[in-house]
Design a protein around this nucleic acid. Structure first.
Lengths: 280, 280
DNA sequence: TTGCTCCTCACGTCACGTGAGGTGGC
DNA sequence: TTGCTCCTCACGTCACGTGAGGTGGC
């Protein structure tokens, strides 16, 4: 039996960590003295401790590790878990590299500064008959799955479409998770009833600031920034949900640098200037 | 001017994050209504927000970002920072991959199970005259720097050495940071006084459990585990600081798989069995 | 007896997310 | 008037690290 300090030195795990593992039930000492509360560890606990450390190294949370170990898991299964997690880690490395690339594009954006590359137009948008699918999806990336579902429905029922696909963002504010999205395709005619997909008329937008963005979606924030500057300078107010119209997108099979997107932002004229109370 | 919800939607930053940035002074709204507390943001704040997001993406903490941005930093310097951080990120990716390899070795260790590959010997260790350097270093990895300092001192003063280098771990328990290490090389004769390096006699160890480990240092924990099992089975107690003697190490220029290390663990016979109080 | 080791709280970390409970604006 | 948007706390997160204050063991 080893006192916690010796066990710590020889396993290279801090005393604080050992006490914490005890606290959460991940690795209880072999014996605890009733009177003094001293923890005593046995060499028999080393395999478990080493598994904890290995799984931690793989990026599992302690809670997950507890579940994994308490299942009296056969070594086979453990090995499978490790393999899968290893692959996931490799994917993460790939994602890190993608992040590097994103940073590089931002860097470029910073360097170029803000060229007035966008032409903002104020126009009205007609009401639009669409087949639409609205859903709360876990993350933003799921928008492509929604489009897949919608387009396969349209194709299956041979509904003729009359324009490019678009998205309406329904959340009152930005959310990272559980995003309320509506994807829509302008169509003619009818289609059978469906649980998630319906025909409806997107309302007209009397006044919308719009612009055309050419380039990858990662640079859309530049377009939004230009739009916001315009809205502020011209003293408009936001009056509804913005839409993105995909004039050319991934379905073209082309380079993301050639994607063309229109942003539509409903506006109304600001009624009054900012109240300027100079009294303290 | 934009209300927080609109600003959130158009910049794709959550309202909670915007309020938090306000709270820590990283991005204060252009205007706050005295009466209602409503925050109003201006399009002029977009460049700053985008910088914050870019720097966050690079892995800076918000505190660091605040410092970077408040220095009214010239674009040149900002660009330099980004470049350096980008390189650091690349290093991190490399480290992730190293972690993958570590995991792989642990996996192998798990698969091999515990072959009794170690021969534990109980022996006494003679007192040893050494040139030694004891210091509290930031992390474990700094042990090699200590060895560098010590060896160059010995070489400079032409002190003849009489045996392999070794390390004594002085912390009563394991620490990740601020590690109290002593590196030593057995020598003959004298050397001039030095601030950090001194001649001293390492005390004898009347009883030490020792074993020889062959392989990379990442697998030393296996050796320690074997040692601990032996100590427990034979009912000894730990009675001092363990040492590692580097019989063959990186200075050989060889493969880490060929490194040879001796571990010495001072022991005393356990005086009594575990008191077994069956009374509640 | 005196350090040394061990103990148990309680609090801090970092960048927000998640409510609760309440007010202003159209 | 009624939702809707906004507000301010307060608390939780995750895996410990950092003390404070106190006891047991040789």
């Amino acid at each position: 039996m080893f006192k916690i300090g010796d066990f710590s030195r020889l396993t290279r795990v801090t005393v604080k960590a050992l006490r914490y593992y005890d606290g959460v039930g991940l690795l209880r000492p072999a014996r605890v003295d009733r009177e003094t509360g001293y923890r005593y560890y046995s060499a028999d606990q080393l395999p478990r401790l080493h598994r904890v450390l290995a799984l931690k190294d793989l990026g599992f949370s302690l809670e997950q590790i507890a579940l994994l170990l308490d299942d009296a898991m056969p070594v086979e299964q453990l090995r499978g878990m490790l393999r899968r997690k290893q692959e996931e880690l490799q994917r993460q490395v790939a994602e890190e590299q993608a992040r590097l690339k994103r940073v590089a594009t931002r860097l470029l954006a910073l360097e170029e500064g803000d060229g007035m590359k966008y032409e903002i137009m104020l126009k009205s948008v007609e009401p639009l008959r669409v087949a639409s699918l609205r859903a709360v999806v876990p993350t933003y990336a799921d928008v492509s799955a929604l489009f897949g579902e919608l387009c396969s429905f349209i194709a299956r029922h041979r509904v003729p479409f009359t324009g490019p696909a678009l998205t309406v963002y329904h959340d009152g504010e930005y959310r990272e998770q559980d995003v309320d999205l509506e994807v829509a395709v302008p169509v003619e005619g009818e289609a059978p009833a469906h649980e998630r997909i319906g025909m409806r008329e997107l309302p007209a937008i009397p006044q919308a600031a719009t612009l055309i963005h050419q380039g990858p979606y990662e640079l859309l924030h530049e377009a939004y920034a230009a739009l916001m500057r315009w809205v502020e300078v011209n003293r408009y107010q936001i009056a509804g949900l913005n839409r993105e119209v995909y004039l050319r997108g991934p379905e073209s099979g082309g380079d993301p640098a050639d994607y063309i997107t229109e942003i539509q932002l409903p506006l109304s004229k600001a009624k009054e200037d900012i109240p300027c109370k100079l009294s303290i």
